[in-house]
């Protein structure tokens, strides 16, 4: 037995999930493009706040009954309003960008072959990528919600919230409900992330994977808006994404959200499984 062999023999197998996961988060959040993406998400909710402020100044007293109009009376509502506005396009787009990069980005750079020969097992690499997508979804939703609260408070002030049911809840209770809304949105976005992860295993072009994932989410929203397809709506991933608004009822209405979480989970499991089946024996020629 040669000298180097002996030194390798004493090396124990340790788990690499934690270290690779930390490295993955540094990679995702250290990347300038992703940081700009977060700023854009924040900028959109800021624009919404400013637009509402301007319209309030021009038409004082005009007030609708929905969540967006409620912002004019209480800045904390801008957190909910931001999520409502961005859940349709911008948050899914952000997740699509991250998911497109997950495997296809590494394949495109050629770093995939070096990761796999390091070695990291393919299922572990997929799991790390999936968890990083979950964190990315959470951070995106958090930035929108907390950014909305800060901007809204600065523009409209903060105070106890009037729920959609007409009752009054304290600021602390309101913020707690906003946090629950963020977590609910995160689960839905992460499920979309699993679709993106699957697409990402099919190509070596991250842009293609991103575009395909964003198209899937947009298509789902369009299908969800066609009344003739109402039989299909309960099965669509995005159908209950906006149900976090039920957190603003008193008492909180949970039926739609619970079903929504099950749908998210089903999509997540199916597409993570599909990604694994595809990636497990894939020939890495990049």
């Amino acid at each position: 037995m040669s000298a180097p062999e002996a030194s390798v023999a004493v090396r124990q197998r340790r788990g690499s999930f934690g270290r690779l996961f930390v490295s993955e988060l540094q990679l995702v959040f250290g990347r300038r493009r992703n940081q700009v993406g977060l700023v854009v998400l924040l900028g959109l909710v800021t624009m919404l706040g400013v637009a509402l402020k301007v319209s309030q100044l021009r038409h004082p007293g005009a007030r609708g009954g929905d969540i967006i109009s409620a912002v004019a009376g209480n800045g904390i509502f801008l957190g909910f309003a931001g999520l409502t506005i961005e859940i349709a396009l911008f948050l899914p787009l952000a997740v699509s960008v991250l998911a497109g990069d997950a495997i296809a980005g590494e394949a495109n750079l050629g770093t995939l072959r070096y990761l796999l020969t390091s070695p990291v097992s393919r299922v572990r690499l997929l799991a790390v990528k999936a968890c990083a997508l979950g964190v990315g979804s959470l951070v995106g939703a958090l930035v929108v919600a907390l950014g909305g609260v800060l901007v809204g408070t600065a523009l409209f002030g903060a105070g106890p919230l009037i729920t959609l049911s007409g009752s009054r809840i304290g600021i602390g209770d309101g913020l707690l409900r906003l946090l629950l809304a963020v977590l609910y949105v995160t689960v839905g976005l992460a499920a979309l992330g699993m679709i993106g992860l699957f697409v990402s295993t099919l190509t070596e072009q991250p842009i293609a994977a991103t575009v395909a994932t964003a198209m899937v989410s947009t298509l789902l929203w369009i299908l969800d808006a066609v009344p003739q397809l109402d039989w299909l709506h309960p099965w669509l991933l995005v159908d209950r994404w906006s149900a976090f608004i039920d957190l603003l009822r008193d008492p909180i209405f949970t039926d739609r959200m619970v079903t929504g979480l099950w749908v998210d989970l089903a999509y997540g499991v199916v597409f993570f499984g599909a990604a694994w089946l595809r990636f497990r024996n894939k020939n890495i020629t990049s």
Binding site: R11, Q12, R13, R14, G15, S16, R19, L20, V22, S23, Q26, L27, Y114, L115, S118, P119, V120, R124, L125
Partner: peptide, 16 residues
């Protein structure tokens, strides 16, 4: 250096 540390992190047998 960061690139090397990333590859090292991927190797489950390496000592952090």
């Amino acid at each position: 250096l960061t690139n090397l540390l990333r590859l090292d992190a991927a190797d489950g047998t390496s000592d952090p």
